[in-house]
């Protein structure tokens, strides 16, 4: 049995279809990512799965319970860390956790025990009696992670867990999430628009765009399916028809005097490529990223204006001409 199964899950806001016939299965113990640009329908999907808004049509089964027919049971099975902070900053970290235990009708003894357990897990034991307004952004996120876990949920939803955090703190959060998955044996669903986050954290990904899944699978496989590396050659023109015929070459595009060649593995094939094209001004090699994967399936960059996105986007458009 799948821990989560969505069946034609759909949400319309007037004329806008935010989530369009979403059907997917998530297995127990997975770290599953929903990757897509802002407005792709990730948060709406999460709001439906957590019973905060009802679907327009379709449904989802979570831990054996239907989100439409048994939302109370669903709510008991899940924990959530919202995109925006949702702890009370006037209260202390400890008090916020205590409130959570009360809201979930936990036994008093178990509650106190769990508060200390989860505080240890996110390393906030020392600061538990400080008001949350004195916490840093990363500490606050960790507190909310701890809170989401307190009542032993089967599934933990994390909505953009590292949004607005500095790179170091993001790294820490990733470590915690990994640790949680292992130590608490739970299924974790993450929404994110950060490629690196999806890549490093998730066992499996659904790339979503305009409410639909455009690609599904482990990050490595998603990248492998499209090739492995991109070679960029400067100072070369021409069509390089002879390269297209090679079995290790996945795609060749030229744009503004540069040529972009997608190959299975540049460490093996770079020499052969260079032999065939002759002298070039410079060579640049980088591994294929999820950005390229997203671009491939949607024709758009996830974050417009980011240097890498722009780089790859141009290559894509060139290839389409």
């Amino acid at each position: 049995m799948h821990i989560i199964e969505t069946r034609n899950l759909t949400k319309r806001f007037n004329s806008l279809t935010a989530v369009d016939n979403l059907s997917l299965q998530i297995e127990e113990g997975e770290i599953f990512g929903l990757l897509g640009p802002n407005g792709a329908g990730k948060t709406t999907t999460l709001m439906m799965l957590t019973t905060l808004i009802p679907p327009t049509s379709g449904t989802a089964i979570i831990n054996g319970f239907d989100i439409v027919k048994a939302p109370d049971q669903v709510r008991k099975s899940i924990g959530i860390v919202f995109q925006d902070p949702s702890s009370d900053e006037t209260l202390t970290g400890y008090e916020n956790l205590k409130l959570h235990g009360l809201l979930y009708d936990m036994d008093n003894e178990l509650r106190e025990q769990r508060i200390q357990e989860v505080l240890t897990l996110v390393e906030l034991t020392e600061r538990q009696h400080d008001a949350v307004k004195k916490y840093s952004g990363g500490m606050r996120r960790r507190l909310e992670l701890a809170r989401g876990l307190m009542h032993h949920p089967k599934i933990l939803f994390l909505d953009e867990p590292t949004l607005g955090l500095d790179p170091q703190t993001r790294g820490h959060i990733w470590v915690y999430v990994r640790k949680l998955a292992v130590e608490e044996h739970i299924t974790i669903i993450i929404t994110t628009h950060y490629m690196d986050e999806a890549d490093r954290l998730c066992d499996r990904l659904a790339i979503v765009d305009q409410g639909k899944i455009v690609a599904l699978g482990p990050p490595e496989k998603l990248k492998k399916d499209l090739g492995g590396d991109i070679i960029r050659l400067r100072g070369k023109n021409g069509q390089f028809e002879e390269l297209r015929g090679l079995d290790f070459v996945k795609a060749v595009r030229s744009r503004e005097g540069d040529v972009y060649i997608t190959v299975k593995d540049a460490s093996i094939h770079l020499q052969e490529v260079l032999n065939r094209v002759g002298k070039v001004d410079s060579v640049e090699v980088r591994p294929l990223t999820l950005e390229d994967v997203f671009l491939h399936y949607t024709g758009r960059a996830i974050r417009d204006g980011s240097p890498e996105g722009g780089w790859a986007e141009k290559a894509m458009h060139a290839g389409r001409r």
């Binding site: 899940i78 959530i80 702890s87 809201l103 809170r147």
Partner: peptide, 14 residues
């Protein structure tokens, strides 16, 4: 606005 309400609404309380 500060989302504390979501934390309450998503709990099993009616």
């Amino acid at each position: 606005k500060i989302d504390f309400l979501k934390e309450v609404l998503v709990s099993p309380m009616s």
